[in-house]
C-alpha cells in the first residue's frame, strides 16, 4: 500500500518539525514527559496509545493550543510559540502564533465546524479572514477542497444537516484550504459511527498519497498499518517504542505493553 510519496527519515535531511524534550504538566501530572520527535517532509507519523497517555496534548502543543512547560518545538527552523528574551523563554506574540497556526492544519475529534456558516463558508473563512483573500478567490479554493473530499454537492448546507463522516471531511477541507505544510489529526474517527470511519479514512489516505506531511493520533490500527511511515506507541507521556508499521505490528508486538494495548483495541 506504500506510495511514491512515502519516505523515511534520512539522516542529514531537515525535518519539517522537531520536538526537543517537550514537557507539559497539568498541576502535578506530567502529561508529556521530555518527548523528542522529528518529522520529515511528506512523512506520515501515527501515534497510538491508551487514553491519557498524552498523545492529544502533544499534538495540541504543536499547534500552540497548549503551552509547554519545558523543551522546544521547532517548525521549519522557527521555534513554535516561544521566543528567547534575555536568555529566558517567553511567549511569542499573538501575531506570530497565528501565522504559525495558519501553516499547520489541525483536525479535531469533534470536528468543531462553525455551525452558523454553510459548508462552503466554513472552508472560505480561513482564506478570507486570515489570509485576506477575496470572496471569489476563497470560493474557488473552497470548491477545490470540497471536490477533494467529495462533498461539492453539500456546499450550500449548514453543518447541522451533515453526518459525522461528512462533517469530518468538511473539517479536513477547512484545514486544507489554508494550504498547510503539515496536518495534525487528533483522533479524527473516534467520534464517528463505525460505518462512517471508512469515508474519513479514505479522505486522509488520499491526502497521504498526495504527499502531505501528517501526524495522526488514533485508535484505528488500520490507519497505522496502511498510512504510517512510522508508528509510535505512547504511554504515560513518553514514547515507549517506535517503528515502521511492518516492524511495529511484527517485532514490536513482542513488547508487552504494545501487545496488550493492541490486543485491547482489536
Amino acid at each position: 500500500m506504500k506510495t511514491d510519496n512515502t519516505r523515511h527519515a534520512i539522516p542529514g535531511d531537515a525535518p519539517i518539525i522537531r520536538l526537543e524534550k517537550v514537557t507539559k504538566r497539568f498541576g502535578h501530572t506530567i502529561a508529556v514527559n521530555a518527548v523528542d520527535l522529528s518529522v520529515m517532509p511528506k512523512e506520515k507519523v501515527v501515534i497510538i496509545g491508551p487514553s491519557g497517555s498524552g498523545k492529544s496534548t502533544l499534538l495540541r502543543a504543536i499547534n500552540i493550543l497548549e503551552e509547554i512547560d519545558e523543551g522546544a518545538i521547532v517548525f521549519e527552523g522557527r521555534q513554535v510559540g516561544y521566543v528567547e528574551k534575555k536568555g529566558r523563554r517567553a511567549l511569542d506574540t499573538p501575531k506570530n502564533v497565528c501565522a504559525l497556526r495558519a501553516e499547520i492544519g489541525m483536525v479535531f475529534q469533534h470536528f468543531h465546524l462553525f455551525p452558523h456558516m454553510t459548508v462552503c463558508e466554513n472552508i472560505m473563512e480561513g482564506p478570507m479572514t486570515v489570509q485576506g483573500k477575496s470572496r471569489e478567490e476563497a470560493h474557488i479554493i473552497a470548491v477545490d477542497m470540497l471536490k477533494k473530499v467529495g462533498l461539492l454537492d453539500k456546499q450550500g448546507v449548514y453543518p447541522a444537516t451533515l453526518s459525522g463522516g461528512q462533517k469530518q471531511r468538511v473539517a479536513i477541507a477547512r484545514a486544507l484550504a489554508m494550504k498547510p505544510k503539515i496536518m495534525l489529526f487528533d483522533e479524527p474517527t473516534s467520534a464517528l459511527d463505525p460505518e462512517l470511519v471508512g469515508e474519513v479514512f479514505n479522505t486522509i489516505k488520499g491526502l497521504a498519497d498526495e504527499g502531505m506531511t501528517m501526524i495522526i493520533v488514533t485508535h484505528q490500527m488500520g490507519f497505522a498499518r496502511e498510512i504510517a511511515d512510522r508508528v509510535i506507541f505512547m504511554e504515560s507521556g513518553q514514547f515507549v517504542t517506535e517503528a515502521p508499521p511492518k516492524e511495529f505490528f511484527g517485532a514490536c508486538m513482542k513488547h508487552p505493553r504494545v501487545a496488550s494495548f493492541v490486543d485491547s483495541i482489536l
Binding site: N63, R101, A102, I104, H112, G126, T129
Partner: peptide
Amino acid sequence: IDHGQMEAAKAIGMSYTQ
C-alpha cells in the same frame, strides 16, 4: 459556546479578536 469553536478558529490561524 463550546470551547472547541475557539480552538478550531485558532487552528486555522485566527486571532482572538477574529
